[in-house]
Simulated scan of single mutants.
Amino acid sequence: MMKKQTSPRPTKQDRGDATREKLLSSSIDVFGRYGFDGATTRMLAETAGVNLQAIPYYFGGKEGLYVATAEHLASIIIEHVGELRSAIFERLAQLDKAGEAMSPKEARDLLTQIVQRMIAIFVSRQSESWARFIIREQMEPTEAFERVYANVMGPMIGMAGRLVATILGEPPASEHMRLRTLSFVGSILVFRMAHAAMLRQMNWQAVGQAELEILRRHATELVATLGSGKEGRS
């Protein structure tokens, strides 16, 4: 008779990793809803379903957990765009090393891909808690904002700036080009930051596959109008 196989017992390290993960995952939503001052350690622990002492044990206190949560949030976002982001950065580095310039057509293709990916993320339910956390940090930046900006926002805006500058044939580091890039990024962020207004304006109950396909086509149009003379027309 075959013996029943049993799963190995989780080790102390496994349990510790699971506790950390629970705290980090749930803290994105708690800090986003109540802010650093409004979120108590008891609230954070109870939401995560862990012992109150886990916070000082693993993070040194609420402030340590807050900064670690920002880093965790950054890593989650990177997971969703990491492969595409890495491919674009590698392509840019390859061209820089060879002393060659990217063609406007290739820049449009790459920018379209990343914009479509970002819009899909922004309209997902998962990104609601991310937005709350980041919006609070935009209003009153702390060390947590520096972690999110350094790991995600800064590199992504910089990458978009290189592509937009290539399409428009302007120096990417110029003040004008940086403003153009921020305006372009803002036209994408609106799908998360003004999500309720978008649903109301479009008469959508939610964003399903059909709505997402409409938004993908819109993303293509956003990139296509860059430098086409159609920008800013009423």
Rank of each mutant, 00 (worst) to 15 (best):
M2W: 02
K4A: 13
Q5E: 14
T6A: 13
P10R: 11
P10H: 06
T11L: 06
R15P: 00
E21Q: 13
K22F: 02
I28Q: 05
I28M: 10
D29M: 07
F31M: 09
F31I: 06
F36W: 09
F36L: 15
T40N: 06
R42L: 10
M43F: 03
M43L: 15
M43V: 07
M43H: 08
L44H: 03
E46L: 11
V50Y: 04
N51R: 13
L52M: 11
L52S: 08
Q53H: 11
A54E: 08
A54T: 05
P56A: 09
P56M: 09
Y57R: 15
Y58C: 08
G61F: 10
E63Q: 14
G64N: 10
Y66V: 04
T69W: 03
A74P: 02
S75M: 09
S75K: 12
I76Y: 04
I77E: 08
I78R: 13
E83C: 01
A87E: 15
F89H: 12
L92P: 02
L95W: 00
K97I: 02
G99V: 06
G99W: 06
E100T: 13
E100W: 00
S103D: 08
E106A: 10
E106L: 14
L110C: 01
L111D: 03
Q113M: 13
M118D: 07
I119A: 06
F122W: 14
S124Q: 07
S124P: 07
R125H: 13
R125Y: 11
Q126T: 11
E128T: 10
E128Q: 11
S129D: 12
S129A: 14
W130Q: 02
R132D: 11
R132K: 15
R132C: 04
R136M: 07
E143V: 09
A144D: 05
A144W: 02
F145L: 09
E146R: 07
E146W: 01
E146T: 03
R147Q: 05
Y149L: 02
Y149T: 01
Y149H: 10
Y149K: 01
A150H: 07
N151T: 08
N151Q: 15
N151Y: 00
V152L: 10
P155E: 04
A160T: 14
G161V: 02
G161R: 14
L163Y: 05
G169P: 07
E170A: 12
E175Y: 14
M177F: 02
R178A: 12
R178Y: 00
L179H: 12
L179G: 03
L179T: 13
F184K: 03
G186K: 08
S187C: 05
F191S: 03
R192M: 08
A194M: 13
H195C: 00
A196K: 12
A196T: 09
A197G: 10
L199Y: 04
L199I: 06
L199D: 06
R200C: 00
N203D: 15
Q205S: 13
V207A: 04
G208E: 12
G208K: 04
Q209G: 01
L212D: 08
E213P: 00
L215A: 09
R217M: 11
E221P: 00
L222R: 14
A224W: 01
E231G: 07
S234Y: 07
